[in-house]
Write a protein that binds this DNA or RNA. Structure first.
Lengths: 136, 136
DNA sequence: CCTGCAACCCGTAGCCACTACGGGATCAAG
DNA sequence: CTTGATCCCGTAGTGGCTACGGGTTGCAGG
């Protein structure tokens, strides 16, 4: 009665909500360790892989880049565990997120305002959007 | 006293604030027409090119994709000029911008809140950021 | 006229983070 | 033992550029 260790890549993909091809990609770039294989060569994962992969997915969902996640993963290891070193990574990312946010908000305002001036004059020869793009 | 027609790619780049290599790229993908050349093969542009390139730059700055800009450019031509056809392109883009905006705002809130809980316990063994990534 | 050097030429490869494809091998259920 | 789902691997494509390298052209000063 050995534990049911041996998660196929497909089941790992479903469990961690990461695309199967993406898992292989993470292995290629060294973000996920190469797992054991069956005799026939199929990958076999365990719970530790699942935890690591879910960590990566949550990091990606928060917008961290692969290299930041690599750093965060090593800072999450029991020996190295350091909030002090995690903070600058997260803070720098937050800074970038805020910059993009400000940029997008600007675009949104311009687009919304310009489009609002389009309402109605469907068949008119003038177009606020085109005029903005041609603007001096 | 012929007009000073004949803008080198470098001067066009400076004038339109588009990278020189990007201009060549736009020509390769058919977004910019192939201009005349000097005897030696250097590209020579005119004001029409400058207007088109600036149109493209403004479109890119507003976040439109290359294919949308291609469509907008053709809808900006004197014969085809159609606000009616421009609107769905801009509206669809605005929709995408708003989706990204909402997504980024969500990230920002999570990151900011989590980081705020990091303040102070620099050398503590626990870390709100890591805990969130490991969550479950 | 000649030199020197900035500007230009072209094609290709690299960036990020995947995603898709194709053709073959393996696994597990019936 | 057959079938069909799953998995294998390597490579190429995505978007929108940017960088590189090695060669050619243009033009201003001497």
């Amino acid at each position: 009665m050995r534990a049911p260790r041996g998660l196929t890549i497909g089941r790992l993909a479903a469990l961690s909500r990461v695309n199967l091809e993406t898992i292989r990609y993470y292995e290629r770039i060294g973000l996920m360790p190469a797992p054991d294989r069956t005799e026939g060569g199929h990958r076999l994962y365990d719970e530790a892989h699942e935890r690591r992969l879910s960590f990566i997915r949550r990091g990606r969902e928060l917008g961290f880049g692969i290299e930041s996640i690599r750093a965060l993963l090593s800072l999450a290891e029991p020996d190295h565990r350091s909030c002090e070193e995690v903070q600058p990574i997260a803070a720098s990312h937050l800074h970038e997120v805020r910059a993009k946010l400000a940029d997008l908000a600007r675009l949104e305002a311009i687009l919304a305002e310009t489009l609002s001036r389009c309402k109605g004059h469907m068949s008119a020869p003038s177009c606020p959007v085109l005029e903005m793009l041609e603007a001096r």
